[in-house]
Write a protein that binds this DNA or RNA. Structure first.
Length: 875
DNA sequence: TGAATCACG
DNA sequence: ACGTACGTGATTCAG
């Protein structure tokens, strides 16, 4: 039996629009915009792969006027003109389709929809399976048992499939009622009026009762609600006309037939040459035609006898390892590039060369690297103390734009228009297949990377100057990298025996909870599988469904807490999850990464990752060790000083983000509150609830605290309502009252959003930048998210600036005072040290002093501290 | 490999 | 009408 015939129909204009707006305005080296072409090509390739059509056609709109304008001359009125940046791309999209041998069609006076509708109906009669692709939900009216309508969702290659069943589930309507819905609610993008005051909800409600617009209008008197009745009566004709406008014509006088649309596959040469012309490397690779990147000529010399002409001042240095974790990855070679050329040195030759080691340790011989922390730490594990690191490509590019994540030298070089080095992935492979290449390949690769670092030096420093960020890079990030490297190398001592004991206890508890849960469920299942758990809770036990996820029922803690008094199994599940997390992530996870001999863990702080300027910590993550719940907090008992007679010392900023907000917003009320060192949540409660200090109840303070969190995150009534479990209206009222009391904050929130719109980015106190292109998005969600980002980033980012500065000052101070104390960790607003008992009293004086004076704000900074025999006790 | 969940500030 | 609180990383399941 032959496969069924399958026709794919595409709304060309709609998808081109989608692609254009979904992607940033890319352009190729000739200055031609390519984002819509690129997006269209991606969708096209995906459609062909996924659907494997036997027949295919892309329909386009022709001209400005259509037969619909006879009905309503304002049809599609008020619509913005197609941006010229998009228009100029349309010819290429047609060329692309021709290269793929996909038929395309347009017809004067008709829209793409009508062509598609007509062909879909015809094809279905002829026994085709039909798939329609568009970005316009109107097309869903064409859905039948044999015609599926795929509408693009966020992103461009993600689609939602509308079958009659899906439409029923989503709207409770039949596909043919979609036009009735449009008739009632209208469509602002097409300027279809509908009935004023009727939105989607009302339209669906009416159609469930009356089926069609016509039937509804005949029975207006049966409609509940006086206002609604009047509106319907008044706009009767408009509703009928709107329905007519929204109706896709299935009898368009086209001169093609589905039989003519056989898809024969692409002219691959044409596709390749078009992609090459447009510079679509990624798509070429997907075609299996990825060009070998041609790198510039470069002679790399292998050196066995290291001489002084290699060991110069201002030399680019590559310290190469195979693997991410530089604490344990093997060194595989070195390269140096300077005015005398590019040189490769094997690991053995370098580490055995006194000349090389002396040079590496010579502070006066400046080195340029990519990822200074990695180079320094990696060499330190081989007892080489790398000094004189003067330039770091990774940090420079991170400061210029934290959005870009560069995994290697080649990716940065490419961004700056250089084609000197190959990517690490190309040379080493990735994942399990990662392996060292031949020595000759390695020689070339490392030499090229070193040459790229040299070439990038001036370019990136220029970019920093241009942004007025040279100071941030040179005086903050670069020195901090070395400090972080020392902290990582030093590591934190872990009390393994203690961890083991906790593990045994947790395992026992876990077993008990597991048995209880299985008994209460009446069967055994995997509690760790949200899918299986969902079936047990919501199907077998019939508990109410509170929230759904993309894939099924949500079983998250906030959902379970709402079900707590409905069934005793819930409490056990919550406990099981809590204990399970402690066991797997903190006890087992921590033991796995603790070094067997030294009993230390060596985290890696990622200094070039977060969008706000914070650090992150991995392998293990020591920035998320439990503290909020007592059972978890006990994990901290396992973090202990590395030497006998020493203690842990922790110091944290109190309310640093709100203090930063007070400073940058210059809100008088907030500044006053912090100047007088008031309890900020109590103060907020007093102002929001209009009560005196004595009248503030714990509940009021709790709510005020949530409001303060909301303010820092970029407030939204919805978010606050979720957090407090109140209605959106109530949340909105809280926010309103807050902003009335703190007018300066209100002005800041408004101004910062404006600034982001105007400049395209926001900045922190130390001129760190975050670009926020989405702030101009027409999509409500994306735009709202961008606005919150604009509000939050200067706050979170400035707090990050402050503590980074404090770390530099602190290490300097420890050195000046000749103290043995070590800085071990940073957890966003706190610093953790270990120190001899005798030094604790000194730390209690100097740590708060240094931290509080890291940066001068218009409000005082406040630091709390504590010490004890373990991290747990330093509270 | 992505989604869900949960740990932290 | 829309339907998310900001910033991270690790573990587990399931396709």
């Amino acid at each position: 039996m032959t496969d069924k015939k399958k026709l794919v129909l595409v709304d060309g204009n709609s998808l081109a629009y989608r692609a254009f707006f979904a992607l940033p305005l890319l352009s190729n080296d000739k200055g031609v915009h390519t984002n819509a072409i690129y997006g269209f090509a991606m969708i096209l390739m995906k459609m062909l792969e996924d659907e494997k059509p036997t027949h295919m056609l892309v329909a386009f709109d022709a001209g400005k006027t259509t037969f619909r304008h006879e009905t309503f001359k304002e049809y599609k009125g008020g619509r913005q003109k197609t941006p010229p940046e998009l228009s100029e791309q349309m010819p290429f999209i047609r060329e692309l389709l021709d290269a793929y041998q996909v038929k395309r069609y347009e017809l004067p006076q008709y829209e793409a929809d009508d062509i598609i509708g007509t062909l879909a109906v015809e094809a279905e009669k002829d026994g085709f399976e039909v798939k329609i692709f568009s970005g316009d939900k109107d097309l869903t009216q064409l859905s039948t048992d044999h015609t599926t309508v795929a509408i693009t969702k966020k992103g461009i290659t993600e689609v939602e499939y509308y079958t009659p069943a899906h439409i029923e589930e989503k709207y409770g309507l039949r596909p043919d009622q979609i036009i009735d819905m449009k008739g009632l609610m209208g469509d602002s993008s097409d300027n279809i009026p509908g009935v004023p005051g009727v939105g989607e909800k009302t339209a669906i409600k009416l159609l469930k009762q009356f089926q069609t617009v016509e039937n509804l209008l005949e029975h207006i008197d049966e409609v509940s609600g006086k206002k609604l009745k009047e509106k319907l009566e008044e706009h009767k004709e408009q509703a009928v006309m709107s329905k007519k406008l929204a109706t896709i014509l299935v009898e368009t006088p086209i001169d093609v037939s589905s039989k003519d649309l056989a898809y024969e596959g692409p002219y691959i040469d044409q596709v390749i040459s078009l992609y090459k012309e447009l510079g679509f490397q990624t798509l070429l690779e997907r075609l299996g035609e990825g060009e070998q990147v041609e790198v510039e000529e470069l002679e790399v010399t292998k050196i066995t006898d290291i001489t002084d002409d290699m060991l110069t001042d201002h030399a680019a240095l590559v310290v190469e390892q195979l693997g991410d974790n530089y604490h344990e990855a093997d060194l595989i070679g070195f390269a140096i590039h300077n005015e005398n050329g590019a040189f490769f040195i094997t690991k053995e030759d370098a580490l055995q060369s006194e000349a090389f080691k002396l040079w590496a340790q010579d502070e006066t011989k400046k080195k340029w690297v990519f990822d200074s922390k990695r180079a320094v730490v990696a060499l330190r594990w081989h007892d080489v103390d790398l000094k004189g690191v003067d330039y770091d490509v990774l940090l420079a590019t991170y400061v210029v734009n934290p959005q870009k994540s560069y995994e290697d030298v080649a990716s940065v070089a490419k961004e700056y228009g250089l084609n000197i080095a190959l990517s690490d992935e190309k040379v080493y492979g990735k994942g399990a297949k990662q392996a060292a290449p031949t020595e000759d390949e390695l020689k070339d690769h490392l030499g090229r990377k070193a040459a790229a670092i040299s070439a990038l030096h001036d370019l990136t420093l220029e970019a920093l100057e241009k942004n007025d960020q040279h100071e941030l890079y040179e005086d903050l990030e670069l020195p901090l990298a070395l400090i972080l490297g020392e902290m990582e190398s030093l590591g934190v001592k872990v009390d393994i025996e203690r961890l083991e004991r906790m593990g045994e206890e947790l395992t026992k508890k876990l077993k008990e909870y597991e048995e209880t849960i299985h008994r209460l469920a009446g069967e055994t299942f995997n509690i760790n599988s949200p899918k299986q758990l969902g079936v047990i809770l919501f199907e077998k036990l019939g508990l109410p469904i509170i929230k759904k996820t993309k894939t099924g029922y949500s079983t998250s803690a906030d959902v379970l807490e709402k079900l707590e008094d409905k069934h005793e199994i819930i409490r056990s599940i919550l406990h099981y999850r809590q204990i399970g997390k402690l066991q797997s992530t903190y006890v087992e996870g921590l033991m796995k990464v603790t070094h067997k001999n030294t009993h230390k863990v060596h985290t890696r702080f990622n200094q070039a990752l977060t969008q706000t300027g914070r650090l992150s910590s991995t392998d293990p993550n020591l920035q998320n060790i439990p503290i909020r719940l007592e059972e978890g907090r006990k994990i901290r008992q396992a973090f202990v000083p590395s030497k006998e007679g020493w203690l842990m010392f922790a110091a944290d900023y109190s309310q640093i983000e709100l203090r930063v907000l007070a400073h940058i917003s210059q809100d008088e009320n907030l500044i006053e509150a912090f100047t007088q060192d008031m309890d900020i949540h109590t103060k907020t409660a007093m102002d929001v609830f209009h009560v005196s200090e004595e009248e503030v109840t714990p509940s009021m303070r709790r709510q005020a605290k949530a409001v303060n969190f909301g303010i820092v995150y970029g407030i939204s009534d919805y978010g606050l309502s979720q957090n407090l479990g109140i209605t959106r209206k109530e949340a909105a009222a809280f926010i309103e009252r807050y902003l009335t009391s703190f007018k300066g904050v209100k002005t800041y929130m408004e101004d910062i959003v404006q600034e982001a719109k105007q400049k395209g980015y926001v900045t922190t106190l130390l001129k760190r930048r975050r670009y926020i292109p989405d702030i101009t998005s027409r999509n409500f969600n994306i735009k709202s998210f961008a606005e919150r980002t604009a509000m939050n980033t200067p706050i979170q980012g400035s707090a990050a600036d402050i503590i980074k500065k404090a770390m530099i000052d602190m290490v300097q101070k420890l050195k000046e005072e000749n103290l043995q104390a070590n800085l071990l960790l940073q957890v966003h607003d706190e610093l953790i040290f270990e120190a001899p008992k005798e030094e604790i009293a000194i730390l209690e004086k100097i740590v708060p002093e240094v931290m509080e004076n890291a940066l001068q704000l218009d409000v005082p900074l406040k630091v709390d501290f504590a010490s004890g025999p373990s991290w747990y006790d330093a509270k």
